[in-house]
Nucleic acid binder design. Structure first.
Lengths: 157, 157
DNA sequence: ATAATTGCAAAGTCTTTGCAGTTTG
DNA sequence: CAAACTGCAAAGACTTTGCAATTAT
């Protein structure tokens, strides 16, 4: 993403603006905005190419807000999820990752090395279409996790 | 409930024989066969159309073996999984279901009512082929859980 | 005999929840 | 001010593990 070179050294696209937009949605929903929440949203949006666990987020945010408790992270993530801002994807084993709702995608989880691969939704569309047609089942847009072996682990075997 | 043979070998398929076959594999692997393990295997194979959780299995087996502990179930399931006799499928939220390795299939998990739908592997084959071709990712045969809304819950919405 | 299995209790993960004190709008 | 958020501690669901006692082979 080539940056606009005028006055803002903003990475990619206007991060602060997007953060504020999310916070506004929170407010519009009757929620309050605290510095903790702002930090959480910022961290979440900054890492939009990564998937973060609640714990990842806690560690990141706690650099600046040492007292921000994990339970707050969970509660904030829950609020954001309800707003449709983030998606939670269960990877199995009780772990879940969160990420901003942008590109719809699914996940490949390597059972051996744990590697996470993102796959655009389109790849899954034929499947989800078939599930709807044949089973009446409406798959969630961001919640499919496929486990197996990643390329490296498979070739090593 | 048609289990009782008069004098026939079981019409559908010989359950006892299959149980013993599994137990033999256990022995062949250096394992021991206990009455608890036999009961677990029997219960597992009897319910092959159902998916059972470790807890389901415990409740079933404990009718006859009241002292059989949940940890034993888990350990036995782990052994059976290593033998390739059962598969464990993570459904998200830390829950897992086990079932004998027979028909390869995947799962649709309704986020609202929890309903579990089995889908034969063939339906997923185009997807898993694509994942292999495009990402080098080898999906496990029995481990895909798709969450979403089942037909009933979707129509109710 | 001896290595595997078992029950039990305890610990481990990840997540959720009840409360009382703080803060936001 | 009232409603919403927060930290804390505790609980919850599910699974794993260390041990000494038991049991299969």
């Amino acid at each position: 993403m080539a940056g606009h070179s005028h006055t803002h050294p903003d990475p990619g696209n206007d991060l602060d603006g997007r953060v504020e937009a999310v916070l506004d949605r929170l407010r519009a929903d009757g929620g309050r905005v605290t510095s903790g929440r702002r930090a959480i949203v910022l961290s979440l949006l900054s890492a939009r190419d990564h998937h973060v666990t609640a714990d990842d987020l806690a560690r990141a945010v706690q650099l600046d807000h040492p007292d921000l408790h994990l339970s707050t992270i969970y509660r904030t993530l829950e609020a954001l999820e309800q707003l449709g801002v983030v998606t939670r994807a269960d990877l199995g084993q009780g772990r879940a990752v969160y990420h901003p709702v942008e590109r719809a995608h699914h996940h490949l989880v390597c059972e051996e090395c744990g590697a996470l691969t993102e796959v655009p939704e389109e790849v899954f569309a034929p499947l989800t279409d078939a599930l709807r047609a044949r089973y009446g089942f409406h798959a969630s847009s961001h919640h499919i996790a496929v486990s197996g072996q990643c390329r490296d682990c498979a070739s090593r075997a």
